[in-house]
Design a protein around this nucleic acid. Structure first.
Lengths: 184, 184
DNA sequence: CTTATTTAGGAACGCTCGTTCTTGACTGAT
DNA sequence: ATCAGTCAAGAACGAGCGTTCCTAAATAAG
């Protein structure tokens, strides 16, 4: 019944993530989306409802398929501490957190739905780090430990600095190795 | 010669900083600026040339009169380590870095002049921390130490998290106290 | 007082934005 | 073969943007 769509919805969302991750929301026009996503204006509105609808779909895909696997790699690892360390070592150089970063800074303050998604993700972030650090109580609890909160903040900050300017080789490593010393 | 201007340019810039610090650049219209700054559209363009001109003036004022004093408080303190610690304790809750944060995330990638200002500020950030940590060589050098780079990134990240959502009391303190232990 | 200059108020410009509509080609089920 | 439903291509819409222009009131210098 009817002509089949000539594009893969997931591919479109993927491409939208890449676009929204490198420029501000208002800096991406619908024309830009239509041009770079290969999907027609009509289909875009048919499938996603609006520009904001596409953005929300992209954000949710990003959080579920790019950010959450990063956390899962930490919590599900046989040696969570080492996995967390790896996140500090190499994680700041890859762009698999950039849309989260932009969403936090520029969209969450003006879009409650974005704020909700971001807040939920950050709660997961904290819980994963608490779990890796062996503080299971804090991970299960509703409030994260201050250290986990600070460490996830640090990861975001490291990625932010790497994204804007030069990467300082080993900055994440140094930070984590200083942190992870049993307290006297 | 002529009617004197009825507004204080510095006051206008100050107010512009507050506006630009809480919403995205494209989320602030010239009408918003005219309304909230109390300065007329004509004067705005006469004095600052354009919306971007006002933004640049606001950013530079912010970096020089809000961010730089934060760093000076660390480098010029009799006990730099304690001053740096204070920056972690209380510094993440005050909004005196928010415009820098937004500029880094959303403007620097599309405005080379903003990128330059931000990069220069972050170099100062790193140098101040290196100085406080006693690593004067790295501070004088062109490249900061990885630890200083990571710590300034952490400060930004902490402020980002506090700005978006709930502040975790003492997160900065915990982080800094874990860091500042003489290595074996 | 006159004059030059700058202010304030607000209309208007051209442009781009997000969104909708129109038209015609295509395809899968009846 | 027919037909209903979806697609592609792009024109068109109103709204809002950053910016400019026009008019009149205000004030410091001559």
């Amino acid at each position: 019944m009817g002509r089949p769509r000539a594009f893969d919805e997931t591919e479109v969302i993927r491409a939208a993530v890449s676009l929204f991750a490198c420029r501000a929301y208002d800096g991406i026009s619908v024309d830009d989306l239509v041009t770079h996503l290969g999907v027609h204006r009509n289909s875009l509105y048919k499938v996603f409802g609006s520009k904001r609808g596409l953005y929300l779909a992209a954000l949710r895909w990003h959080l579920e398929h790019q950010v959450r696997p990063l956390l899962a790699k930490v919590t599900a690892a046989p040696d969570p501490i080492r996995a967390l360390r790896n996140m500090f070592v190499a994680g700041t150089a890859n762009p698999d957190m950039d849309l989260l970063l932009l969403a936090m800074v520029e969209r969450a303050p003006v879009d409650p739905e974005v704020a909700e998604e971001v807040a939920r993700t950050m709660r997961g972030f904290d819980a994963a780090i608490d779990l890796a650090l062996g503080d299971g109580a804090a991970a299960a609890d509703d409030a994260p430990s201050p250290l986990a909160y600070a460490l996830s903040a640090a990861i975001l900050g490291l990625r932010l600095r790497t994204r804007t300017g030069v990467d300082a080789a080993g900055a994440g490593t140094v930070l984590f190795d200083r942190i992870h010393q049993p307290q006297p």
